[in-house]
Design a protein around this nucleic acid. Structure first.
Length: 541
RNA sequence: GCGCGCGUAGCUCAGUUGGAUAGAGCGUCGGCCUCCGGAGCCGAAGGUCGUGGGUUCGAAUCCCGCCGCGCGCACCA
């Protein structure tokens, strides 16, 4: 560990100093990177925090702490006191430069940590009904779910990516009826029933259906659409570890078991010919119907059964990535799980909800596609701008805010396009090695004198590279991949700055060797961010 | 009406879980540059962080009210 290494040393020495001036024994100094790098490399607000318990002025405390700190033990060059009582720590440029060696050595593992302790977690995403091609909302989910999964893997969790097919229920009935309508119309205009599906794909399925095989229309349609969705995800580069079929919950009797258990636990009642669950006992604003008056179950019962299987399969942590339009279901699923009295905690599963996606092309919103009819598909986006751009654009914004997908920007081959800018930074670093005819992957930096990396752009770039592990763990803990896209762009920016200002090849050998090491470190970090986000890192463009 | 989310520069958005003078990209204006790899670099203008209160050493961030936008409020998923 390189980045936190500094912080740990400073923190330990800071704590020792704080205790020596009478701080409470349980004091835990907080270190942070100041927003403005001109202030310091690392900063602590400990003096302000201690002001109250010690009944002294923050600046006074800060001075006392500074005076009792050992610079060498903390590994810092300078300590300053600023503002209301910040302790600002500055690192020696040669110390900073030295860290490049570690980044190059760790290579593809740089940024990983073990915080998750190999704990199993299931991340469920996309989970579309097999009733049509995947739409852009599913695309956002796929990008988010896959990136969150990667973040968790990078921080030491054992991740299982899961796709839940809602292949039961009324919507599947409607799909079957829609396909049958086309079959019956014999190529003529079909009478699609109320609630049915109108896309071109429905007609295609009807045309391809062959009654002679003995396979039912319903099974054939489901199989075709699942295959199509699988291809969409494959084109997007997303791989699932498991697929779970809603229908299996019925055939395995799991839905019945859940209902029986809920009844046995006394959380249900009959009313108006239906069976209700008292979800209001668990924070819902009204009780929910479990079994309709026609004897079938509402969707949330298999949902509860499904999430129970996650728990029983050993996933003590479960994360669901869904559109915000499903927000209403979270409370009742959790309520159902708790009503089982099986020790499933209140916040299980965790939800990551995202807002809607609108697609804009030539300044106009695109709402329809030929294949799907009333919506734009993930496949359309991939065809228009490529997988990398689709992924990046979906991850650029935090899930809480609606996303406008600018197709024209995404396909532009210039710096205005963030994906291009980012990949170009990687290509540039790679270009240095190509032109210099150096095999970067075999580069030995163990005996290079890195202390010559003292230029402002070099120090800024290195410090940025050092932030990478902390960025990963922060983004993983918050389940916010957009932090990584922002970090990647900033890293690319600093790499571009450095590249424009300073030459590598053709410099005197000591400088060239050190700069080659830095170019390699930058290449590694940019490549790692790209790979983590599921985006390719081209060597040339 | 109730619940959830969001209001930050002209536009698109960040803001490290309460820290220092609120940032970036695009756009606008002024000036350089043509270099391993493609118009890049430097500087400037631009903000009552929707609004009114509260909490404290300190608030864009936490709490309450109000305004505006989105989503949800099914015996659909």
């Amino acid at each position: 560990m390189i980045g936190p290494g500094f912080a740990d040393r400073i923190r330990a020495e800071l704590k020792r100093a704080a205790l020596s001036i009478g701080a409470p024994a349980d004091v835990e100094p907080i270190l942070e990177r100041p927003r403005d790098p001109a202030h310091a490399d690392w900063a602590s607000n400990i003096a302000m925090v201690l002001a109250r318990p010690l009944r002294r002025k923050p600046t006074e405390i800060a001075t006392a702490i500074r005076d009792s700190m050992n610079l060498a033990d903390a590994g810092v060059d300078r300590i300053e006191i600023a503002g209301p009582g910040f302790l600002n720590f500055r690192l020696d440029p040669a110390t900073v430069a030295e860290t490049v060696r570690g980044i190059v050595a760790e290579n593809e593992n740089y940024g990983r940590s073990a915080a998750g302790e190999n704990c199993p977690v299931v991340v469920e995403f996309v989970s579309a009904n097999p009733t049509g091609p995947l739409h852009v909302g599913h695309g956002r989910q796929a990008a988010l779910g896959d990136a969150i999964s990667s973040l968790l893997e990078w921080t030491g969790w054992r991740v299982s990516r899961e796709f839940y097919y809602n292949d039961a229920g009324v919507q599947i009935d409607n799909l079957e009826l829609s396909v049958r309508a086309h079959i019956n119309s014999n190529g003529g205009p079909a009478e699609i029933p109320e609630g049915g599906y109108h896309g071109e794909y429905v007609r295609e399925i009807a045309v391809r259906y062959d009654a002679v095989t003995g396979e039912g229309v319903r099974e054939f349609a489901l199989r075709a659409l699942r295959a199509e969705q699988d291809l969409d995800m494959q084109a997007f580069g997303v791989k699932f570890d498991t697929y779970y079929l809603e229908s299996s919950l019925y055939t395995d009797g799991k839905v019945h078991d859940v209902v029986d258990r809920l009844i046995a636990n006394g959380h249900t009642y009959e009313s108006e010919g239906a069976l209700w669950l008292r979800t209001t006992q668990y924070g819902d604003d009204k009780d929910r119907v479990m079994r309709k008056s026609d004897g079938t179950y509402t969707y949330f019962v298999p949902d509860v059964a499904y999430h129970l299987t996650k728990w029983q399969r050993g996933f003590t942590h479960a994360i669901n990535v869904q559109g915000a339009d499903h927000h209403g279901t979270t409370t009742r699923v959790r309520a159902g799980l708790r009503a089982l009295n099986m020790g499933i905690p209140e916040g299980y599963p965790q939800y990551v909800l995202h807002q809607m996606v609108t697609v804009v092309k030539e300044s106009e919103e695109v709402k329809i596609s030929k294949r799907a009819g009333s919506y734009v598909t993930v496949r359309d986006l991939i065809d228009w701008v490529g997988r990398d751009a689709v992924r990046f654009f979906f991850l650029m914004r935090k899930g809480d805010s609606p996303l406008v997908f600018d197709v024209d920007l995404a396909r532009r081959q210039s710096d205005e396009n963030p994906v291009y800018y980012l990949q170009m930074a990687h290509a540039r670093m790679s270009g240095i090695f190509r032109v210099g005819e150096i095999d970067a992957s075999r580069m030995d930096v163990s005996s290079v004198d890195l202390s010559v990396l003292a230029e402002a752009e070099e120090q800024a770039l290195i410090k940025q590279l050092l932030d990478f592990p902390a960025e990963i763990s922060g983004a993983a803990a918050a389940m916010e991949p957009h932090r990584i896209t922002a970090y990647a762009l900033e890293t690319a920016r600093l790499a571009h700055f450095w590249y424009h200002k300073h030459h590598v090849l053709g410099e005197p050998e000591p400088i060239m060797l050190a700069r080659l090491a830095l170019a390699r470190a930058a290449q590694i970090v940019i490549r790692n961010t790209l790979h983590l986000l599921g985006i390719s890192a081209p060597e040339r463009m």
